[in-house]
């Protein structure tokens, strides 16, 4: 599904004139197989988010190749990359990243609006999805009127609404208590089972990583496979 080949990236740091290049990703090569939940675990600052940003097309890598469903995405320009994201990716962030001025319903609707889908079709799709993730009761609430867990459900629903083959999640449970964390992880697992969506979950928490089908460990910019695991 996603294949990463010999990916390198470094950041420039320091003042102008005395910049230093700090390598963050050092020759990563790995695959994310279709229909699996893959987690990338590593210490803070190990480069997990940077890897996700490059896979998602927010950042152009220094070198290396990435292809998604056989399409070379690492050579896309900004516009192509945006279009590709809209059609193929969903995103779940640690701090939810909902639009404060839109209701839960409208937040979920947003990707469809961007795709230019008609109002009536949008309404129907969002309504169905809100029901299946248990958000119907709070659909008219604004994000600041929702609990953390509810907000993360809304943001998962937003990631799902376009039926993307892949959802990227950067610390999806990082801001949640352990009980809500379990809820969200179960939701991810059930979506993976019922809809066959591939998940790439970034975490620093071993417990979260346990729920994945495949775990990669990030250490000093190098990725090693931690073996396929199966949660109960």
């Amino acid at each position: 599904m996603i294949s990463v080949r010999n990916l390198n990236h470094s950041f420039k740091i320091g003042k102008k004139g005395k910049e230093k290049r700090v390598p963050v990703l050092k020759g990563l090569t790995f695959d994310v197989p279709e229909g699996e939940i893959v987690s990338i675990i590593g210490k803070s600052g190990s480069g997990k988010s940077t890897l996700l940003h490059i896979m998602a097309g927010f950042l152009t890598p220094e070198s290396g190749e990435i292809s998604v469903q056989g399409i070379q995405t690492s050579s896309f320009n900004e516009v192509e990359s945006a279009k590709f994201r809209l059609d193929h990716f969903g995103f779940v962030f640690q701090n939810f990243q909902l639009m404060p001025g839109l209701t839960a319903f409208e937040n979920v609707e947003l990707p469809l609006t961007l795709k230019g889908i008609s109002k009536s079709e949008r309404q129907k799709k969002v309504k169905d999805l809100m029901q299946s993730v248990g958000l119907t009761d709070v659909q008219d609430h604004y994000p600041n009127e929702l609990s953390g867990g509810q907000q993360q459900r809304v943001s998962i629903a937003r990631a799902l609404i376009t039926d993307p083959p892949i959802i990227f999640a950067d610390e999806p449970t990082g801001s949640l208590d352990s009980e809500t964390e379990q809820d969200v992880l179960l939701l991810i697992q059930s979506l993976n089972k019922t809809r066959g969506i591939t998940f790439v979950i970034i975490t620093h928490d071993d417990e979260v990583a346990q729920t994945a089908d495949r775990v990669y460990r990030m250490h000093d910019g190098i990725l090693t496979e931690g073996g396929v695991q199966h949660a109960i």
Binding site: A56, F58, E78, V79, A82, K83, F84, R85, L86, D87, F89, F91, Q97, L98, M99, L110, P111, L114, R158
Partner: peptide
């Protein structure tokens, strides 16, 4: 967020 979701810069 809009750009992340896939909104065209234009």
């Amino acid at each position: 967020v809009m750009k992340a979701i896939g909104a065209d810069p234009k």
